[in-house]
C-alpha cells in the first residue's frame, strides 16, 4: 500500500514541525511548502496556523491563497487547523478590514468579555487547554477531549457547516465539515490519541459532509 502524502502550507507563521510529525506518526509522508506550484501538486493539503489573523490574511493575499482557494474549489481534500480554519471565512474581529479566503460565509469573533465559568469566575482568554466537543459527525468523537489555544472562534452563516461545538462560557463552533473540507479550531497534533484519530480520518477515504 502506498503511503498517503500530505502537503503542509507554510504561511511563515510559526513552527510546523509538530504538525508534520503528527502526520508522519499516522503513516503519511509530510512535506512543508510555501511554493504554490508544490501546493497544486499535493495529494492532500493541510493548513495549520498560529499567530494573528492579519499576518495570515496577508500571507494568503497572493499566490499561496490562490492555490489554496483553487484547491478547495476543485473539491480536493483540505484540513484546516486553528487559523487554517478561521482563514476559510470572510473576516475576523481580530483584524477588521482584512479579508479571509471567503470559502464560507461568516466571521470570526473574540470570546466576549464578561463570560464566566461554572463557578462564576471570569473566563480566561485565550482559551488554552483541553476541552470537550459535542459532535454527531463521524470524524469527531462526541465527548472527546482536544487541545485548544485561541482567543477567536468561527461563526459560520450556514449552521449546517458546524461539525462540532465546545463549551467555553457557552457553545462555540469547534469544527466544520463540508464535502472535501475539514477544519478544526483545536490542534489534533497536540491532542494525543484523539487527535491522531482525526488525522487518520483525514488520511482515509471519507467525504466529510
Amino acid at each position: 500500500m502506498s503511503r498517503s502524502r500530505v502537503t503542509i502550507v507554510d504561511l511563515g507563521l510559526g513552527n510546523l514541525h509538530s504538525v508534520a510529525k503528527a502526520f508522519e506518526r499516522a503513516g503519511a509522508v509530510a512535506e512543508i511548502s510555501a511554493d504554490p506550484e508544490v501546493l497544486r501538486r499535493a495529494d492532500r493539503l493541510v493548513m495549520p496556523g498560529q499567530g494573528a489573523f492579519k499576518e495570515c490574511a496577508h500571507a494568503l493575499a497572493g499566490a499561496i491563497g490562490e492555490a489554496v482557494r483553487a484547491w478547495i474549489d476543485e473539491g480536493r481534500p483540505y484540513l484546516g487547523i486553528c487559523l487554517g480554519m478561521q482563514a476559510l471565512f470572510d473576516s475576523s474581529e481580530e483584524a477588521p478590514g482584512e479579508e479571509g479566503l471567503g470559502i464560507f460565509g461568516g466571521t470570526v469573533r473574540r470570546f466576549a468579555p464578561g463570560l464566566v465559568d461554572a463557578e462564576g469566575r471570569p473566563l480566561k482568554v485565550p482559551h488554552i487547554g483541553w476541552n470537550q466537543i459535542r459532535s454527531r459527525h463521524p470524524v469527531f468523537e462526541d465527548g472527546e477531549w482536544y487541545y485548544f489555544v485561541h482567543s477567536y472562534y468561527c461563526v459560520p452563516n450556514d449552521e449546517s457547516l458546524v461539525a462540532a461545538t465546545t463549551d467555553y462560557g457557552g457553545p462555540f463552533c469547534s469544527a466544520i465539515a463540508r464535502d472535501n473540507v475539514l477544519a478544526c479550531q483545536f490542534h489534533p497534533e497536540k491532542s494525543q490519541h484523539a487527535g491522531a484519530r482525526v488525522i487518520s480520518h483525514f488520511l482515509g477515504d471519507v467525504a466529510w459532509s
Partner: peptide
C-alpha cells in the same frame, strides 16, 4: 526539545 516534540503529541 526537537526530538521530544517529534515524539509526543501533547504540549
Amino acid at each position: 526539545v526537537d526530538r521530544t516534540a517529534s515524539t509526543i503529541a501533547v504540549p
